[in-house]
Amino acid sequence: MKHPSFAIAVTFEIKPEHRDAFLQRVLQQASDSVRLEDGCFQFDVLVDEDNPNIVFLYETYADAAAFDTHRATDHFADFSQQVADWVASKTLRRLVLQETPS
């Protein structure tokens, strides 16, 4: 079984009036990504305990190429277009797994 070696951490600040719609749509995006993409292992949606307008995504992929494939999917394009006006800010970090020596 292949294991993920690449992760994405995304922090969104959502405009308050769009929070519920964003959460519904991002949960669908998470489901679609894991279900439709062989290279997507995990797609967690988390909400900040102190500020419900901060949404954090943690996604793991087989490798960076699998993430690039994710970004090229129709469901990613649809999600990005649909939520664009709902987002006040967004930061994305690309993370590479560091394995312990054998």
Rank of each mutant, 00 (worst) to 15 (best):
I54T: 12
S5P: 11
F76R: 07
A21L: 04
K90W: 12
I54G: 10
T73S: 10
V34P: 04
P101V: 02
F12N: 12
D63Q: 07
S89H: 10
K2V: 04
L95M: 13
E17P: 12
D85H: 00
R71W: 11
V47C: 02
A84H: 10
F56H: 13
A88R: 11
G39S: 05
D85G: 01
A62S: 07
P52W: 02
A65P: 05
E17G: 13
F67G: 08
A88P: 08
V87K: 04
Q98K: 09
P101K: 03
D44R: 15
D74C: 00
S5G: 11
H75G: 03
L46A: 01
R35I: 02
D50N: 06
Q82H: 08
E13I: 13
V26C: 01
Q98L: 08
L23T: 02
D32Q: 04
T73F: 06
P52E: 11
L92F: 13
H70Y: 10
E13D: 12
D78A: 08
D20V: 06
F43K: 00
L95V: 13
L36D: 07
I14P: 14
P101D: 01
L95Q: 11
D44G: 10
S33K: 01
N51R: 08
F22L: 14
D38N: 00
D38F: 00
N51W: 10
F12E: 14
R94H: 15
F41N: 08
D85E: 06
D32L: 07
S89E: 08
T11L: 11
F22V: 15
D32P: 02
Q42S: 10
H70I: 08
R35K: 09
F43N: 00
E49A: 00
V83H: 09
S5W: 15
K15H: 13
A9M: 14
I54S: 13
F76H: 11
L57H: 07
V87S: 06
D32C: 04
Q81S: 12
F22N: 15
